[in-house]
Simulated assay, not measured.
Amino acid sequence: MAYWVSTILTVILIYVAISIALYYLQDYMLFKPEKLPKDFEFFYENQDTEEYYMETRDGATLNGVLFKCKGNARGVVLYLKGNSKSIKGWGKFAVDFTRHNYNVFMVDYRGFGKSTGRRSQKAIKRDLQQVYNKLKELVDEKYIILYGRSLGSGFAAKLASMNNPRMLILDAPYYSLTKVTARYMPFMPLSILLKYPLPTYKWLKYVQCPIHIIHGTHDKLIPYKTGVRLSQVNPKLTKLHTVIGGGHKNLNNFESYHAMLDDILNSKPKSIDLKTTSINVIHSSKKAKTQH
């Protein structure tokens, strides 16, 4: 066998081996869950919480925590977190909504915290729809806000595309998880191998509620241009909020982020009479003739 043929076969075998390993190990690469014992008690200073369990149709158990605001609730925020840890750590962000008199419900995905069950994109989507349906039993859907953070942004977009929440807020969202991973493995056939493609851009097309995208200009994991690109998918319903200098994990440390959130949660949409604006003004490129 010629040397070059042997080399090509070796490269092919290595490529196939890496592809197989990537397919079976991607759960460990994508998700960084924190397991919690069944007797773990959630506690957050100055936060009133209530823990919930929910059984799924395939026998899994979902664990979630409801953060209650101190006044009369204006609605509920279903907060879908990122791909690491558990709601034990993510719960600290609930205050950003309870301070505006919104209750917040956070749920751990399968394999995170106290939640159990075999994880898959289909299973997680089904789980979250079940959670959403449960919330609709407690509060009118027009008072439900979907908030998706990083990994949760794709699932939030999917939920919004299939339901009618008050609004959808995406924090550091990705165009699709296939696009994110392709930056690090450009030569792999990820469209075939990835079990969690999470095509946020596809689902946003079908969302019919107001969409707010919050993105930092210094996000190195999911570049700011991704937020800009997503804002163009459903432009009539979308508003892009830019956190100057914000990264992927530190938007809550910027005063501008909280100002944006305040504006999103408290401002009422205003209709504009376009007839009174310059929208139809035609600007001529020709220079005006000088009168003599």
Rank of each mutant, 00 (worst) to 15 (best):
L240F: 05
Q121S: 06
R118K: 15
V104F: 05
I244T: 11
K136P: 02
T242V: 01
G64R: 10
P189M: 01
K287T: 11
T276F: 09
C209E: 00
P269M: 12
Q232G: 09
F31C: 04
N63D: 08
F254R: 07
G91Y: 01
I87T: 01
K81C: 01
F254D: 02
Q208K: 14
K268G: 06
N72C: 08
K122C: 12
G117R: 07
R126Y: 11
G117F: 05
L261K: 11
E255H: 07
P173K: 03
S278T: 04
N133V: 09
V243S: 02
V104L: 06
S150H: 03
G113L: 01
N266F: 08
Q130I: 09
G71H: 14
T238K: 11
E50C: 05
Q129H: 13
Y28T: 10
Y79M: 10
K220Y: 10
I145G: 00
R149S: 06
N252G: 09
S19H: 11
T10P: 07
Q291W: 15
P223M: 02
K114Y: 06
Y224H: 09
Y52D: 00
D262F: 13
Q208E: 09
A2D: 15
K205H: 08
D273G: 04
P235W: 10
E141A: 07
Y102H: 00
Y184G: 04
H248S: 03
F67H: 01
Y132L: 11
S6E: 14
L30H: 00
L177G: 00
H292Y: 14
I18W: 12
K286R: 15
R166E: 13
V77L: 03
D171C: 08
N101K: 13
A21N: 09
M162A: 15
Y224A: 05
N164P: 02
M106R: 06
F43M: 13
F105W: 05
E137T: 11
P210D: 05
T61M: 12
I145C: 02
Y174N: 09
K136M: 10
N266W: 07
